[in-house]
Write a protein that binds this DNA or RNA. Structure first.
Lengths: 155, 155
DNA sequence: TCGACATACATAGGACTCCTATGTAAAATA
DNA sequence: TATTTTACATAGGAGTCCTATGTATGTCGA
């Protein structure tokens, strides 16, 4: 019988012992940062379009449903966003030679340019604040990015 | 003279020397994480309402415009969200004794309960992935949260 | 080979988010 | 006290994103 057995425990105060409030804190702060940066970048490109372009760039010629999965979205949502992006000439769709139901989506040169512009607008919005951080703090952010990517790619 | 000094550097590849692609990378990954977590938490509470409750909790009895500023939002947006939250009994508004135009918003007990539930749902959504990380990785995230908070509070 | 089921995408409808423009009343100021 | 400013409310519209459902193609077993 270990001492722990005889000590009455207080009720569990966290549903997930070991991680504590890390999850909610992390989500709260990223939501704030997301809104902060979005409101400053003054993007002319709708956010969902920008995310779509980044997704297409990342997984190359891809199907609608693959893009939906990458973006934690749904197929109908991506279908509609793809229609807009195609109309704007930002992506190109070709029939999938191996599957008559599917099409493959890829960026056009225009789309690549738009994506580049979006990224530099975001960089510009955030840069002044990043410059005020210490090198150590920036390093923490860099490493955190890698951690979150690993967390997201877990499945 | 250190060896590093004698090594020819490649040309700057980013338009923001010193910060590199940190800004866009950071924003891209947090947007992904935000969507991922939101889609899994299966919240019954709309996201904007949850953010509002957290804001009210954070700055206590507060005015509409103070809440808007905290959330990088606008006064009309917060006004509407407050109306919903008040109808649901999540916040209470009292006249500001020192200013007839303003009212002070605070959480009700119900609102506090809702906020607690939202946080535990988010914690539960993220916990399995956080548990797969190493202690070092979780520590990086904890420190990154503090860094981002400092960055956001810069003004 | 044909029917049944699965898969990939399209369409429809609705809830939610959030902005700009503008109105109203109270406060502050000249 | 007249003017301007401030705090909040209202209106309208663009965007986001989901579930439900329809259609066509692919796949598989009888």
């Amino acid at each position: 019988m270990t001492p722990a057995d005889s000590v009455p425990r207080p009720p569990e105060r966290q549903s997930v012992p070991g991680t504590g409030a890390l999850g909610p804190d992390l989500l709260a702060v990223i939501a704030r940062l997301d809104r902060w940066a979005t409101s400053r970048a003054g993007l002319e490109v709708p956010a969902a379009q920008a995310r779509l372009l980044a997704a297409v760039e990342q997984i190359g010629p891809a199907r609608t449903s693959d893009l939906a999965r990458l973006d934690s979205s749904t197929q109908p949502t991506i279908t509609v966003q793809l229609q807009r992006a195609e109309q704007d000439g930002w992506v190109r769709r070709t029939a999938d030679p191996s599957d008559g139901r599917a099409s493959l989506v890829e960026l056009t040169d225009t789309g690549r340019g738009v994506l580049r512009d979006v990224r530099s607008a975001r960089a510009a919005a955030l840069a002044p604040r990043l410059d005020e951080l210490t090198a150590t703090e920036r390093d923490v952010l860099t490493r955190a990015i890698a951690v979150v990517e690993r967390l997201l790619d877990g499945s």
